[in-house]
Design a protein around this nucleic acid. Structure first.
Lengths: 350, 350
DNA sequence: TCTTCGGAGTGGAACGTTCAAACCGTGCTG
DNA sequence: CAGCACGGTTTGAACGTTCCACTCCGAAGA
């Protein structure tokens, strides 16, 4: 505030002097105001505002022996990829953490196959009190390591290896896809196929199970009507093309991701078919791709996931709720790609 | 490491005792090893490794009066949007900061139109030593505020308001687009149009100027051959359609962003035209959309931008280089959408 | 009247590190 | 032989906060 470059930052002692109280009282005004007499409170608060005082995070951390920050690994698998939702999750997490007086410290693992040293560093230097895990997978070494070292953590994504671990939040892919199938059936589609990922990915298998369940319930099941593809677009196009050959016009497809849907969308365009008119299309993740292409999509409630993850970190897993983590249902955002099947206009074939 | 929950973390004093030296010597081993006798160094280092000691960041910050962290505002304008590159930039920045012993602290401004309070908080509580600015714009209040408060900062993106400020790094959009035009001309295209943003955005105007310059230099200038669109896909499709009507088959288009290119690509597909065969296409940003659609694109060297930004933060703007910030040329990644114009196969029109 | 109690506020100590200054042999210089 | 420089190491103090134990005072209870 002063122009002098040697201006010392204002400390709690400056405030104490200005308000003629002890430093402890100033500390109480900030941390437990109910212990301070009303008129003292007002006087001290006024000085705090006047001087623009904020407690030094470093001093607090040192004394309280907690960093007030949660680590978040940025692995390039989940970030910056087409259809990534983790950047949105990061924003929600950052905002939510700020509301609770904490920060998020992103970090990268030098060797993404062996991430533990990076976690160890942050714990040992007390930069992070705990971690938010994303991209949980089978044989994930992180939960066990964190448990063993008594480091708090909460995962966005199920901890697949150990059903006893309950400190996770996930989006219910199966019930989301189920809802999508029911939606499409309600719109009049009778042949509903599924474009998913290769078998073995827990997330993919979960989403696929929703398709199996819903089509079975509705009496529309046909195990032939599915295709598998990696997240690469050429692969998605090939798979979508094959699936479309099987299903024919007037059918619908549920896709396990927006990227797969982009592949399907491309094939439709190449064949002169219009999404929502000639073929119903619903996809998962509701990234900006879905919005841009006006595709119906299952929206992941990332704000609620972030909120719950932070809650878990702050309080630990709820012992009264030993059944498991929390599954949040995604919300189906209906756009033009799943218009009622009856709306089909006549169009020249292929 | 011990199973006891009350296990105190190992401190510099534990190491000192174990190695029979003073705490200051341990500190020297870590911070200025050249001051320590070789055999002492080895002995202390061995104890550090054995005990897994890492200095407490909080204690360091407190004593050194610097946080060892740089703030980065996550504004939803730049993040999570289609074709966003800031998530990649964040990864590069995080990695680069770690190499220099710092961290990145992301934060959001409650009111994105008035971000300064959020910056003020972080400075006052000594959470960040300075800031990395992104999404710089005209009438950006941040540089002036940071200068006035002597807070270090470096921007990814020119500081447009004040040519005297040199603590920024940017990608040279004009020369990038210029290179794209020359590339297309070299591939045999003679009508090269431009699909850009509405006038007034400094980034957009800069990129457009490269098209003007290059087409003029090559004697291919035609001010009619351009269209403007916002980043929304329907708008991009409309603009691209109009531009294609003007240009006809066999022409090429340079797009100011990958999103605009997605719009153009869609229109091409709808008209039965193939990118790189019937129409040349080059876009800017080289996000995963460009890769997925196999579009030639101008790749921003985000790793070098991050590196340079961190350098600026660490050392301040170079006084010997008062000319301005650093402009890095983007790299043209050639894919199938800009194949030689001669490769055109015969195809039925429209 | 004496004790107890609770509200309001104070001062010492500690968190773990680094800076600055002091220390201490040893060898070299004048 | 006193003085000094020097590499290697130690010691005291400080960074700014919060925890803990304590004091003070007036009111209520025995």
């Amino acid at each position: 505030m002063t122009s002098s470059s040697s201006a010392r930052r204002t400390t709690i002692i400056d405030v104490a002097r200005a308000a003629s109280v002890s430093r402890q009282t100033v500390s109480n005004v900030i941390n437990s105001p109910e212990r301070v007499a009303p008129e003292t409170l007002a006087r001290v608060q006024a000085e705090i505002d006047r001087l623009g005082f904020r407690p030094s995070r470093a001093a607090q951390s040192l004394k309280q022996e907690r960093a007030g920050a949660w680590g978040l690994e940025l692995n390039s698998a989940g970030f910056g990829r087409l259809g990534a939702i983790l950047d949105i999750f990061l924003i929600e997490l950052t905002t939510g953490a700020a509301e609770r007086g904490s920060h998020v410290v992103p970090f990268t693992a030098a060797d993404s196959a062996a991430p533990l040293p990076a976690y160890e560093r942050l714990v040992a230097s007390r930069v992070a009190d705990g971690f938010v895990l994303t991209d949980t997978r089978r044989d994930d070494p992180r939960p066990a390591w964190l448990e063993a070292h008594h480091v708090p953590y909460a995962a966005f994504g199920r901890v697949w290896d150990d059903p006893g671990i309950t400190s996770w939040v996930d989006v219910d892919g199966a019930s989301g896809v189920e809802a999508a199938v029911h939606h499409l059936a309600g719109q009049g589609y009778e042949r509903i196929g599924y474009l998913g990922w290769p078998e073995g990915s827990p997330v993919g298998d979960d989403r696929r199970s929703g398709w199996v369940r819903a089509t079975t319930d509705l009496g529309l099941a046909n195990p032939e009507w599915q295709a598998r593809s990696t997240q690469s677009l050429p692969s998605a196009c090939r798979a979508a093309a094959g699936l479309l050959d099987l299903l024919g016009r007037g059918a619908a497809i549920v896709c396990a991701s927006d990227t797969l849907a982009l592949g399907a969308w491309r094939v439709l365009l190449e064949r002169g078919l219009e999404p929502g008119v000639d073929i119903g299309l619903v996809c998962f993740d509701d990234t900006d791709i879905a919005e841009a292409l006006d595709l119906s999509s299952l929206h992941q409630p990332l704000d609620r996931v972030a909120d719950r993850v932070l809650h878990l970190l702050a309080t630990g897993p709820d012992p009264r709720d030993p059944a498991g983590g929390l599954l949040l249902p995604p919300e189906l955002v209906v756009r033009s790609s799943s218009k009622p099947a009856g709306n089909r206009t006549t169009r020249k074939e292929k």
